[in-house]
Design a protein around this nucleic acid. Structure first.
Lengths: 122, 122, 122, 122
DNA sequence: GTGGTCTAGACCACA
DNA sequence: GTGGTCTAGACCACG
């Protein structure tokens, strides 16, 4: 038995992922204005530097565009946004399959279970 | 946008889940002897009290049986173990579907994605 | 006439470039140990955080590998190092041609001048 | 490894170089009137004293002629202007070769690279 | 001792 | 007001 506690990813990564989700789900439409670093920091209850780091991450991935003196806005490249959505989905899927595997379920069994659940609730 | 940082579940819960997994996957077969609180606590690097709480949880769920003077052993009720395995799997599944839903995927789409991934890698 | 003063790139970028040069020129051979963040910070006279940022950049580019508790070392991927060397060289070249262009020299004229200088000094 | 940060040349030097470039490229033709110190200072957003120093530099190099009561004008000595253009070009070239040398490229290799780039883009 | 993260607070350039 | 950078100092996990 192995004990690997603490998922504890850095705050800035968690923030980056949440904001990424907000963008790919359309909460912040392509081209729309994004809140200021300071506002977001206050809202999340973190230091502005931490939030800055998260936003820098979103810029690296191409989801946010920054205009130095005029704040940030969501990219207008909808293809990039959709690509990120797929990427996130696959990431979640792999994570799910990984945990199912630990429980002794093969990928096929996991898929069957997922499908059957879909039928139940539809 | 809502920021819900720091999921950080209590340590004893994480430990309980890991030990539960170890049992349902057969690492500790039905009826087998379970390590002592002290040994487990040392191995996990936590306070014995914390480990005690985790084990109490496993007893509540019926996976572990306490024999007053002779330590603990895994239940011989294999049906209960399998039921727990199913329960864990469904829990993971719901968690997965929940996150996919946040990304705008329906249960059906999630199931399709899962199935297609299984084909790719098989 | 246009006045665009101050090249003033951020310190961490300048540091990153200098360290990159040190690696591609072989001052730090592939696989060799790299100084600690704190030592480098003291040596450069900057805050450890600033140096950390520079090193993070070198990791992103794949030149440095970090082993959490054992410090950093130069990548053993010599191809990556050579690729970076070419990239830096092209960057310098473009910068040079850009400035020559401002002086009214075409790329061909700049090339001729470079070639003639090479003959003089050889 | 040696860290030589902050090149930050004095502002008046940067200004002098930019104005020199403007003259050798013909933006200010030989014999033409040159703007007043005050105008230039305002345009560059610097103190008139700073701009004064820059202009003094241009006079030392012979590019600008001061007519006591009538302001400054560009020299009519076109040979001097061309000589300055060559001098600037060689300066840029030497700077370029110096940096390439730091990357481990010989003057010949640098020349070849420059020539090949010219062919690609022409 | 190592790298990594976070906070608090400051300064700068831009418009 | 905006984003960006930098410093100073703290804490943590790891071995």
């Amino acid at each position: 038995m192995d004990f690997n506690l603490k998922d504890a990813r850095p705050i800035w990564q968690q923030l980056a992922e949440e904001m990424t989700t907000s963008i790919v789900t359309g909460e912040f439409p392509p081209g729309s204005r994004f809140p200021s670093v300071r506002d977001l920091a206050v809202q999340a209850g973190v230091n502005p530097n931490t939030m800055q780091r998260s936003l820098a991450r979103l810029e690296e991935t191409g989801l946010l565009i920054t205009e130095r003196t005029a704040g940030r806005s969501v990219t207008t490249d909808e293809a990039a946004i959709q690509a990120m959505r797929q990427q996130l989905a696959e990431s979640k899927l792999k994570e799910y399959l990984e945990e199912m595997k630990k429980l002794g379920f093969s990928a096929e069994e996991a898929a069957l279970l997922t499908a059957s659940y879909g039928k139940e609730t539809t």
